[in-house]
Write a protein that binds this DNA or RNA. Structure first.
Lengths: 342, 342
DNA sequence: CTGAAAGCGCTTACAG
DNA sequence: CTGAAAGCGCTTACAG
């Protein structure tokens, strides 16, 4: 009775009619209120309010060939980069863009296919790919595409593999405590971050003349950490584990304990991500705090720059990660340099 | 040289010209390939391939007044409901929709404002609100809006507050072990789930004639759990804590230990969420496993049904949560029914 | 089975 | 400062 029910949104023409002007004038009002004579402006203003008019953005996009919307493409799965996304979205919004978050099932191929579709749909002004993609000739797609990873790749060229300095710092630190025999439980190798950490682990072990009892490719889960550590020979002599994330580290600790190795007494364990739970666990996890918001900001800034034809901004994330020492790391059982446990 | 560079996408007219037909025919081909005479179809097929034509979706939307895109609105913040989103998105995709994930800073008000904008932008066919919103007269917005919470509300009407049975089960279980004095560290009260758990906690304590040393409104963080437990008087006699999530539970355990209360010897602690880290922590966390994917599926099914004018499907999530007993819970110090510790 | 025409709701030269 | 006209790329009656 009093409720008008759902109403068709009003159009620019209806506003124009009510205001007694042409729809051209209303459009102009929308672009720049000051381009109208005050008297006209007031009439239009009134009509817009009265009808609660909001321009149809689809129509506007069709005309302007700009959609003011970006897409962020990422791998579907349990590792949702929430903080990166939040930071990136916020900046995009401030810059006047809406952002589509497109989570794609499947591997790099699937993501690339999806990106092509998005690019050619006419619905998107630019794309940020967070998870790795398999895309060549992006140029042809006609809209800017920024890969979050390309930053890592750039660092790689500079000899500064992303995450490299932290892995080095961790191993050097453990080595300085007397650890000589290491083990790495890697993350899902589809992720560039997991591959990087693994490579730098191997490289650093080699460079420092340390020993590695192996590397196991995990899947970021606690179970993979548990399984990896419990599968190790009892006499392997490992005293330090570098886990690719905190969840794995937790699994490693639990697995170690199940075979009588106490952390950090017998085994030191490093995680990655500085998750809240790891901070309150016992032992609390030594880990790497990652500024994911900075990563998100960085990536979106690069995309916005490219959309506007500006040069790529300097990455700010070179030093945002830092290593945190907590209770899960300590000197090895014998700190005299021998690692022949057993 | 060999790279053609970025190319303007081709239009339906160009395809028509190349195929030697009218653009109407091309459009028809796009809708239903079988509506063309085989000979024509082949010509169009060829032209579409040759030009790698993809229809401009913005133009299509303008014409059809359908966008085939949904928006999922949620609160910005650290608690990104990744699994719900993934499940919901997948189903939406299968149904032919793209989904925008819109994370909004601020409270229910801000989200409602954003939802209004989305609804009237002409860019969205339907909206799913995951976090609580403050919206009346949604009818007027002209597109279907489903609130993930409305399901909870419906249960509430039925006397089945969401999460209620689990909280009851937890308390009854602990009570059966001999616990008499409880404590609840709640989650951020902006979340319906946090409010529900708190209400049912209070209700159940009362109904069973148990004692509560209080409820503290936390913010889902480990620190809030730590602070809550350490702030308790030493002689309060609490032997069981219901934490609103696993992170809080972890903080509670750490805090308890810091004041000499061992878990579960002196204190039993229940979490919520069944996070991977809690499973591998020591003690491992008793918790509630939540089928977040089912929640996401449920919500999106309701939205799709509403868009298509079908009756709301039956919720499937009534029994998807289940309580998991692990090492963080045990009988109280004296299981004889007295809880006067100290 | 196919084509010519109208129109979705805007913006943007072009005149005045 | 304002308006009439053209057009963005499609789809969908309407004829044939």
């Amino acid at each position: 009775m009093t409720d008008p029910g759902d109403k068709r949104p009003s159009t620019i023409h209806e506003v124009a009619r009510l205001a007694g002007v042409s729809h051209t004038t209303v459009s102009r009002y929308l672009q720049d209120k000051d381009s109208l004579k005050p008297k006209t402006r007031i009439k239009v203003e009134y009509a817009v309010k009265a009808l609660d008019y909001r321009p149809n953005l689809v129509a506007r996009s069709m005309r302007t060939r700009r959609t003011n919307r970006l897409a962020i493409v990422l791998a579907a799965g349990p590792h949702f980069p929430g903080q990166q996304l939040a930071a990136a979205s916020e900046i995009a919004h401030q810059a006047g863009y809406q952002v589509d978050i497109v989570s794609v099932e499947g591997g790099p191929r699937a993501r690339s296919a999806r990106i092509e579709d998005l690019a050619r749909s006419g619905q998107i002004d630019g794309i940020l790919a967070i998870s790795s993609i398999d895309l060549k000739g992006a140029k042809r797609l006609g809209i800017p595409i920024v890969r979050s990873e390309s930053h890592d790749e750039k660092l790689h060229v500079l000899g500064q593999l992303a995450g490299a300095s932290e892995v080095r710092e961790i191993i050097e630190y453990l080595s300085s405590l007397g650890h000589r025999t290491f083990f790495h439980v890697a993350g899902d190798q589809e992720f560039a971050s997991a591959r990087n950490r693994k490579n730098v682990y191997l490289e650093t072990i080699e460079r420092l003349g340390l020993r590695s009892v192996g590397v196991v490719d995990g899947d970021w889960s606690g179970q993979s950490g548990f399984d990896a550590i419990t599968a190790l020979p009892a006499d392997c002599g490992v005293t330090a584990v570098v886990a690719a994330n905190d969840v794995i580290a937790m699994g490693v600790i639990r697995g170690a304990r199940s075979r009588g190795w106490e952390v950090p007494r017998d085994l030191s364990v490093f995680g990655w991500d500085d998750e809240d739970m790891g901070r309150f666990a016992t032992p609390s996890l030594s880990t790497v705090a990652v500024d994911r918001e900075a990563q998100g900001r960085d990536a979106i800034y690069r995309l916005l720059a490219e959309i506007n034809g500006q040069p790529a901004p300097e990455p700010s994330v070179l030093t945002v990660n830092h290593v945190i020492h907590r209770e899960s790391t300590a000197p090895p059982p014998q700190a005299d340099g021998r690692s022949e446990a057993q």
